[in-house]
Design a protein around this nucleic acid. Structure first.
Lengths: 339, 339
DNA sequence: GTGAAAGCGCTAACAT
DNA sequence: ATGTTAGCGCTTTCAC
C-alpha cells in the first residue's frame, strides 16, 4: 500500500494525497475527508524512508544513548525529550550497545534524519578529530566529556560534573567523619573513563588528608554491573583488609557492595560507611538509604538542550558547562566505631 | 556526499561503488581499494533511508520495547539479539514510551525496514483486530498476551508465564508458612494489564485457602514505579491494617515496599513477609534478598525467536507458549510471628 | 484546488 | 569486471 494506491483509490493525484497527509491547507474539505477515510480503511502508513530521503531539512535532534539499561539515563532522557519538544524540535533516539561506535551512529543519523544537532548520552570519549569529522552538525556530550582526548574544545559542547572533584568531595565526607582506612570500588575499563577520573579524585582526597593510599584497599570490579560489584566487594571483605569506609564510583556498584559487606557480616554503616556518586532514584529505596553525590540530572538535560539550540540557532558558540553535584544524605555513612 | 560523489571521485560508476560498499565479489581489487580509500577519506556514510527504500526484502526482525527503563527487559533483549543474530537475521530495536502505540510503531517499522517479523516486549494488549490489521508480518508477544482482548489467537504468537497462576503460587507460599492476613500491592492501570491478572491470582489463592479477601489490605499504587510503590506501602502501614505478609505484583514495587515497611518500623521478614513476581537481578542485591517467582527470561527470549522463525519460515503456525516461573528463595519471607 | 513531473540516494537488473 | 538505467515512495516545485 503506497501513496499511489491511495491516490488511485480516491481518484486524485499523489500530490493531493501528500497534501492531505501533511495537513496542507490547499485541499478541498471534501477531498481531504475522502482521502483520510481511504487511508484509515486501508491501514496505509506512509513510508518514513521515502519521506526522510526526499526531505532536505528537518527539525530533528538526535540522541545517541550508550547502554540499554542504565537507570541513570532514564530521567535525563525524559527531560531531554520534554525540552526538545518544548523548543519546537523533534527528538530521535538511538540506543547503542556498549561496544558500538556512537560517533558512527551519530553520523549515520545525521544523514538519515537530516539532523540539526546531536546529543550524546554516556559513552567513551577518546575519539580522534578525524573520526569526529564525520559529524558535521553541532553536538553536545551530556554527562561526559573529552578529558583524555586531544579534541578541539571549540568543536563540541559538554555538560558534566567534575568527576574527579566529586569523588574528592565524597571521600572528604568520609575523612571528615574520622575515617582513615577508606577503600575504593572501581570498575576496570579498557577505555579511559569516568571510573578512572573518580578514582583519581579518591587518591587525591586521601593524599590531601595525609593518608597514603593502600593498594590493598582498591576493589577492582570487572564491569559496572552489580554482579561484578558484588564480587569485588566480597573479595575485599574476604581479603582481611582493614577498612572502615568504602567509596564506590557509582550508586549501582555501591548497592551491590552494601549487600556483599552485609553478607560477610559487616554492618553498614556500623562497621563500614559507604558513599557513592550518581544519585539514582533506586538508591533511596535500599537499606540503609545510600548517601551519594547526586548528579543534577534535570539541570544537565535542560542545559544540554539549551546549549545545543544556542549553537544551532547561532546565538552562541560551543560551551563546556560544569554543573555541581549535591550531597543526598542517606544512612550509609557514620563515624568509625571506636576501637 | 553521496554515492555519486564517490563514483565521480574514483572515476567509476555508482554501481561499482555500490558493489564495493556491499562487499560484492565482482570488483577488481584495485578499484575496490581505491573506493574504500575515497570513502574513508571523505567521511562518506551511505544513506539508510535510500537503502531501505530500494530494498524489497530484508532479514530484519523488529523489536518493539515498551518502557525506556524496565530492567526486566534488559536481559531479554540481550538474549533476543543473540538468538536473532545466530539465526542469520538482523534485529532492529525501537523503544517506545509508556503512552505510545506499539502496533502503530510496529506497522511503521514493518514497512520502513521491510521486516520479516516482529517481537513485542511488554505493552498493553487490548488492541482490536482492526488495529492489528496494520501489521501483516508474523509477530510474537513476549511476556504478555491478549488475555482480555477478543483477538484471534491464530493471528499471532506469545510466550508468557501464566500471571494469575504465578500470583496464586506466590500467595500460596505465604499461606503455607502460616500467613492469613496477606496484603497485596498492585498498580493502578487504565488498561487491563498484568497487574490485574496477578491481582486475580492473589484473590483466588486467598479464597482457596478459605481466607476472605479484605479490601483494606489492598495497596493501590499509582504506577509501576518505586516512588508510587513506596507511597502505597507506606499508606498501608499507616492505616493500621493488620497483616503479616505482603504479595507485590512486581519486584520493583516489592523493593520499595520493603523500604517503606522498614521505615515504618516493620521488620521484613520478622513482622511482615514479602514475596513478589519477576526475578530481577537487582532483587538479589537488596536486604533482605527478595523471595520472588522468576520469569525464565532466557527461555522466554529463546522461545520467542524460535516460534517467530518457525512461522516466518513456514515450519509451523502461531503458538501460545506458557513457560514456568521458578521460585527464587530469598530471605524476605518467614512464618508469622507468634502472637 | 489540483495534477504532472523531477528527483532525493540507493540497489539491482540488464547490458556490455 | 564495469556501466547504464529503472525504479523504491515520497515531497515539492511549477503549471494549470
Amino acid at each position: 500500500m503506497t501513496i499511489k494506491d491511495i491516490a488511485r483509490l480516491c481518484g486524485v493525484s499523489v500530490s493531493t494525497v501528500s497534501r492531505v497527509l501533511n495537513d496542507r491547507p490547499d485541499v478541498s474539505p471534501a477531498v481531504r475527508e475522502q482521502v483520510w477515510k481511504t487511508v484509515r480503511a486501508s491501514n496505509y502508513v506512509p513510508n518514513t524512508s521515502a519521506r526522510d530521503l526526499v526531505k532536505t531539512s528537518s527539525d530533528a535532534i538526535g540522541l545517541v544513548v550508550r547502554g540499554v539499561s542504565n537507570p541513570f539515563y532514564s530521567d535525563i532522557i525524559k527531560v531531554l525529550g520534554r525540552e526538545i519538544d518544548a523548543a519546537g524540535y523533534t527528538m530521535v533516539m538511538q540506543q547503542i550497545g556498549a561496544n558500538d561506535d556512537e560517533i558512527a551512529r551519530g553520523a549515520l543519523m545525521e544523514r538519515e534524519k537530516k539532523l540539526r544537532g546531536l546529543i550524546f548520552l554516556g559513552g567513551r570519549w577518546d575519539y580522534s578529530a578525524d573520526e569526529l569529522g564525520t559529524v558535521t552538525v553541532p553536538f553536545v556530550c551530556c554527562s561526559f566529556t573529552n578529558t583524555f582526548g586531544s579534541l578541539d574544545r571549540g568543536r563540541y559542547s559538554s555538560v558534566t560534573i567534575e568527576d574527579d572533584l566529586a569523588a574528592e568531595r565524597a571521600v572528604r565526607e568520609l575523612v571528615r567523619l574520622g575515617h582513615r582506612r577508606i577503600a575504593c570500588l572501581v570498575a576496570e575499563t579498557d577505555d579511559r573513563s569516568i571510573s578512572e577520573l573518580r578514582y583519581h579524585g579518591y587518591l587525591k582526597a586521601l593524599r590531601e588528608a595525609g593518608i597514603e593510599p593502600d593498594p590493598a584497599l582498591t576493589a577492582l570490579a570487572g564491569g559496572f554491573n552489580m554482579s561484578d560489584g558484588y564480587a569485588a566487594a566480597a573479595k575485599l571483605a574476604d581479603s582481611g583488609a582493614d577498612f572502615t569506609a568504602l567509596f564506590s564510583i557509582s550508586d549501582a556498584m555501591a548497592i551491590s557492595a552494601i549487600k556483599a559487606l552485609s553478607d560477610k557480616g559487616i554492618d553498614v554503616p556500623g562497621d563500614c560507611s559507604v558513599i557513592a556518586i550518581d544519585g539514582l532514584a533506586l538508591s533511596e529505596y535500599i537499606r540503609p538509604t545510600l548517601t551519594t553525590l547526586c548528579q543534577p540530572m534535570t539541570e544537565m538535560a535542560e542545559q544540554s538542550v539549551r546549549i545545543l539550540l544556542d549553537v544551532i540557532e547561532g546565538r552562541a558558540g560551543n560551551r563546556h558547562l560544569i554543573v555541581e553535584p549535591t550531597l543526598r544524605a542517606g544512612a550509609s555513612i557514620a563515624p568509625p566505631r571506636r576501637k
